[in-house]
């Protein structure tokens, strides 16, 4: 019996060893451990083993079973490993990716969002107004005299109704102050329109971002601090920013803001990015008569306002030379923002 067991074990281990694939290994398992397997059958012989030998034979049998099982498992693992290895052999990882469509946000959305994020961090809330405006909100309330050059059919789109396409987002200042008492701290991104022929530097429909802060003690220092912070955040902390005195009907004093553009291989140059100023008391007076209350009494409140061209900010950010790229939606251009 003992010899028989040892022979079976030796034969089984040899057979397992020679099994080359999962199938022949399974055949071997059945031939050894299956119902009619060699070890199963010899195990059945335990009945006939004399009592005093049972323990020793049993032990031998167990040892044989363990060795066979371990060998089977080991072989199974080896075959699986080989199969796994084979499955991955010859895969060319350098073939191109299975392509997906990559979408993109429009560069104007990206720059607008950057601007809004910065200004929201400073506590500005968003505001909006209609693009088809009336003369009051676009001009009159903004201290723009009736015969101002901007107010003619050559520069501004009018409708037969007498309404017009707003020439700046500053009209949102007026609408916001009409509907809301100070403090007001808003930004208003949106389209504005001018009767300019479309060329490399002009669009008849362009994008602005307006800002307004009105409270009891808003100063020139606030204006300066806010816009310096803004452009440092937008273009980097080392960006030089300068304020040039200028004239706008709705702010006094007024400034234009330049940032110093440093492009590799070019001499640095100042480039105009925004207009700003302290809200002209005449605007507060117009708001007061429109609201019929003293909330915006120019003796009590001050404020600053600013406006910037988002198209221009985008052109500076990415070195876009022709503004028309922003409205042509050429996928070859848009993909670069994916």
């Amino acid at each position: 019996m003992k010899d028989q067991i040892e022979a079976i074990q030796a034969e089984a281990l040899a057979r397992i060893e020679t099994a080359g694939d999962a199938r022949s290994l399974e055949d071997a398992r059945v031939a050894i451990l299956g119902k009619k397997g060699t070890l199963t059958e010899v195990s059945a012989g335990m009945r006939d083993v004399p009592k005093e030998e049972k323990a020793a034979v049993g032990q031998l049998l167990n040892a044989a079973r363990q060795a066979i099982t371990a060998s089977l498992e080991g072989k199974q693992q080896a075959i699986q490993d080989a199969a796994d290895r084979q499955a991955l052999e010859g895969i060319d990882v350098t073939l191109p990716a299975r392509a997906l469509h990559h979408g993109s946000l429009h560069p104007l959305t990206i720059i607008r969002h950057d601007a809004i994020r910065i200004l929201r961090r400073m506590g500005f809330a968003l505001a909006e107004g209609p693009e088809i405006e009336d003369e009051f909100h676009c001009f009159d309330a903004l201290n723009t005299p009736a015969d101002h050059p901007a107010r003619n059919e050559k520069d501004t789109f009018y409708f037969d109704s007498g309404k017009l396409l707003r020439t700046h987002t500053s009209s949102v200042q007026v609408r916001t102050m009409e509907g809301q008492a100070p403090p007001v701290r808003i930004i208003a991104p949106g389209s504005a329109y001018r009767r300019d022929e479309i060329d490399a530097t002009h669009l008849s429909v362009f994008n602005q971002l307006e800002g307004l802060y009105v409270d009891t003690d808003v100063s020139l220092g606030d204006l300066k601090g806010t816009l310096e912070y803004f452009f440092h955040e937008l273009y980097g902390p080392k960006t030089e920013v300068r304020f040039r005195p200028h004239f706008f009907p709705f702010t006094e004093p007024s400034f234009e803001i330049d940032v110093k553009l440093e492009v590799k291989g070019q001499a640095p140059r100042w480039i105009e990015v925004a207009g700003c100023g302290m809200v002209d008391p005449a605007v507060f007076e117009a708001i007061s008569s429109s609201r019929k209350d003293p909330a915006y009494d120019p003796e009590k409140v001050t404020g600053f306002a600013f406006g910037m061209g988002l198209d221009r900010l985008a052109m500076i950010r990415w070195g876009i030379k022709d503004i028309r790229l922003l409205i042509e939606n050429d996928a070859r251009f848009l993909k670069q923002f994916a």
């Binding site: 500005f124 809330a125 403090p183 220092g221 300066k224 601090g225 005195p245």
Partner: peptide
């Protein structure tokens, strides 16, 4: 007159201030 004074003096001479009022977010937000 203030505009003239600031213009001649230059905005550089006026210290920047970083400060603001908290306002609630709006429906537009």
């Amino acid at each position: 007159l203030v505009e003239e004074i600031v213009r001649v003096k230059g905005l550089d001479a006026i210290p920047s201030r970083l400060r603001g009022t908290y306002v609630p977010s709006s429906a537009v937000d």
